[in-house]
Design a protein around this nucleic acid. Structure first.
Lengths: 257, 257
DNA sequence: TTACTTATGTACGCTGCCGCACATAAGTAA
DNA sequence: TTACTTATGTGCGGCAGCGTACATAAGTAA
């Protein structure tokens, strides 16, 4: 592939100091992340961790009756497969590619070795895991207390923050599966938000027209998660995160390792 | 206090090998955990971690409008304050004593030192944190999909698993706050379960009469969490966990360090 | 064009929980 | 006893989201 890509498109990798990066980057494997691809299944031992760059991954739990609910979203700010270094090797949830793109992956062996060095990598991974804890906690709160409209906005914002651009390719059917609600419910919520002029929705393509309006319409859960991620992972301030931008655009095209 | 107590009443502490225990135990402080006591507040830096022995602690998020929702329950199987060693030093949630009793606490300084040794203590703490992740995730799923009756049973079982005995002292008002529902809702759920002969409820005292029945009435979420805790923290098999019982009774009365 | 699949929109009755108001009962203190 | 607080039980209108069924519209392939 000649497409411009760089491990630093992922914030966690970008935040590694040069010395660590030199050790880790050669072992990264650039992989495509097709929509719907299952990175790991409930209870199955993982082989790799994934650092998404242009893709988004959903962690979701699938119930016995087939219904599902999203637990957390991981994009270019994080890593999929924390249980590899946390020691469990698997989880009861499933990881599915929610938005197609690419990721860098690293073998479980290597993550564990890097983690055990107790250096910057370990530090980053632990802080990311705590951010993940917050995201899950807030999902629980949101599921309990907030309306579908609010949850739709929260979900949209969380997803957008993890992707370049202000557009999302995603059918209402898929969103419904993520949120654990009916497809019709999403139709209505999306309709409301569109009537309010905040987004335009056309057959699986969502474009955000008024980001501030979206944030106002979402519940506090979005802000709580956002703030906690910013606090725990302030990559912009890391001297090593070479020129990582104060905006939310993570891409540095045309750069190579 | 002459009451028999021992750090090993807490599973995490009990699982430490003798060498580590000798280092850690002298720095433990035995503290009372009165009902309603707030161990840490949202966003405030923590000073200690707590290892509950005979108490239960609720991690809950309090919304802007005052409504709340429980994120996770911690008892004698775990530790309160994971963000101290995860690196965040605080979280957006609050920790409240849900069932009065005691705990051992350790200064943040000491946990971090122990953690950084990358020994058995770190290993245990990380695995516990992964179990906590699962509990939070399942709370989110449960809030989304299951009825109040089911959630009440799940909550009751999770609480009981973290306490000695088969009785719980807890008003419906408090349970409602934990679950994030109306007090009347809990009245009804508890009434249903009582009519079914599974519990007896009398002014804040819940006694379990038919544990198997309760488990059957709860949703799959309870079993998922239980199974994952058992998998990640199989203390019974640790050679160091001196004679820790194959049943769920954690108390070893009359023993001292 | 035509036929077909996919994505979205709409309607209707049902249910679980909410918000509120109030009633009852069990403990507690004088 | 009486008065008071605390804990629980009950009833009712309202509403968000569910399950279901069906309609429409946009793409796709012949």
């Amino acid at each position: 592939m000649l497409s411009p890509h760089d491990p630093r498109q992922n914030y966690l990798l970008a935040a590694l100091p040069a010395a660590e990066a030199d050790q880790v980057f050669p072992h990264l494997e650039w992989v495509p992340m097709p929509l719907g691809h299952v990175l790991y299944e409930s209870g199955v031992q993982m082989r790799h961790v994934y650092f998404p760059t242009t893709s988004i991954v959903s962690l979701l739990y699938v119930m016995e009756d087939g219904a599902s609910a999203e637990i957390a979203i991981v994009g270019n700010e994080g890593i999929v497969g924390v249980s590899l270094f946390m020691g469990g090797e698997s989880t009861p949830s499933r990881a599915v590619v929610q938005s197609a793109g690419h990721a860098y992956r690293l073998s479980g062996q290597w993550v564990k070795e890097e983690f055990s060095r107790a250096g910057p990598m370990q530090h980053l991974l632990l802080r990311y895991t705590q951010a993940l804890l917050t995201q899950m906690a807030q999902t629980a709160v949101c599921n309990r207390h907030h309306t579908l409209d609010q949850q739709f906005c929260r979900w949209l914002l969380l997803s957008l923050d993890r992707l370049p651009g202000n557009e999302l390719v995603m059918t209402q059917e898929l969103i419904a599966n993520m949120l654990g609600v009916r497809r019709e419910g999403v139709t209505e919520a999306a309709g409301n938000v569109q009537k309010a002029g905040l987004i335009s929705y056309h057959r699986g393509h969502i474009k955000v027209l008024d980001r501030a309006g979206l944030e106002a319409r979402a519940c506090e859960c979005y802000a709580v998660v956002k703030k906690e991620f910013d606090r725990l992972l302030p990559y912009r301030d890391e001297p090593s995160a070479l020129a990582v931008h104060s905006t939310s655009l993570p891409l540095r095209k045309g750069e190579t390792t």
